[in-house]
């Protein structure tokens, strides 16, 4: 991709719970078509940063430019309009437990498109096919396994053909083969729809396999201490912490 267009830009973001500052002075750029990885130790605030990016939590300071617009300056309605082009896969899948998988995926379609019921049914089947859950339309979330819930959650995140998808630890709790398949699926989605992917993950294998850009959040200094392609970061680590993380502590001690 020659011409890189910024999709999301953070400028001096500060995230905090009350007086408890998690991160300050975060600057980063997520370009269109990137697979952007948010890395960092446990409890450093990755999930919270994701909440700021998707509009669930306001930053304590700084600016977030989303699609050229100041995301947090507008009203909730403005943010909803921006988020309509985004899909989110939550750590637990977060499927609505009182609805079948088909109804889960159909809800955003009913909401934001003018498709007829039959057309919606077709789109729903297609999405379930894509994530390998063909035939599970009428199952309830409680009747499928954890990995299947994640895939169903992905199908819902993809319902409206978003141009950006956020993932919180997609491979946590999956066996290595399923994790790999999920990675392939993510790559496939990006290749076919040129979707931007923002992902929190600890899986080194997937970080190197699919990541094209990243930011490393450091617990100690409470800022981002590395930014860029994870493969480059591994070759020329900017500091010991990042080197330790990327080599599972084998180097950089």
């Amino acid at each position: 991709m020659a011409d890189k267009q910024p999709h999301i830009t953070g400028k001096g973001l500060k995230i905090a719970y009350g007086d408890f500052v998690l991160m300050r002075d975060l600057d980063f750029t997520i370009n269109r078509g990137d697979i952007f990885i948010i890395m960092g130790g446990s409890g450093c605030g990755k999930s919270t940063l994701l909440k700021v990016l998707v509009g669930l939590k306001a930053p304590a300071a700084g600016k977030l430019i989303f699609d050229g617009r100041d995301f947090w300056a507008g009203t909730r309605e403005d943010r909803d309009i921006i988020m309509r082009k985004a899909g989110i896969l939550y750590q637990s899948g977060a499927l609505w437990t009182s609805m079948t998988l088909a109804e889960n995926i159909a809800l955003p379609l009913e909401q934001y498109t003018n498709l007829t019921a039959a057309e919606i049914r077709d789109v729903v089947s297609l999405k379930l096919d894509l994530v390998g859950l063909a035939g599970f339309e009428d199952f309830y979330p409680s009747e499928i396994s954890g990995g299947m819930k994640k895939r169903a959650g992905l199908a819902r995140a993809l319902a409206l053909d978003p141009d950006i998808v956020f993932f919180d630890e997609p491979s946590a709790g999956l066996d290595p083969v399923s994790a790999r398949l999920l990675d392939d699926l993510i790559l496939e989605i990006r290749e076919s729809l040129n979707t931007t992917i923002v992902m929190v993950t600890h899986e080194l294998a997937s970080i190197f396999a699919i990541g094209t850009n990243s930011v490393y959040l450091d617990v100690e200094t409470r800022t981002a201490i590395a930014h860029g392609d994870p493969k480059e970061l591994l070759k020329n680590p900017p500091n010991k912490t990042v080197e330790r993380f990327l080599t599972r502590g084998e180097k950089g001690n």
């Binding site: 909440k51 998707v54 509009g55 669930l56 909803d80 309009i81 988020m83 309509r84 985004a86 989110i88 939550y90 750590q91 637990s92 977060a94 499927l95 609505w96 437990t97 809800l107 955003p108 909401q111 934001y112 819902r156």
Partner: peptide, 17 residues
Amino acid sequence: GSMQVNEEVDALETMGI
């Protein structure tokens, strides 16, 4: 409450509902 724990409420909110 369990929908809140399960992030289902977040999922609705981010979907603009």
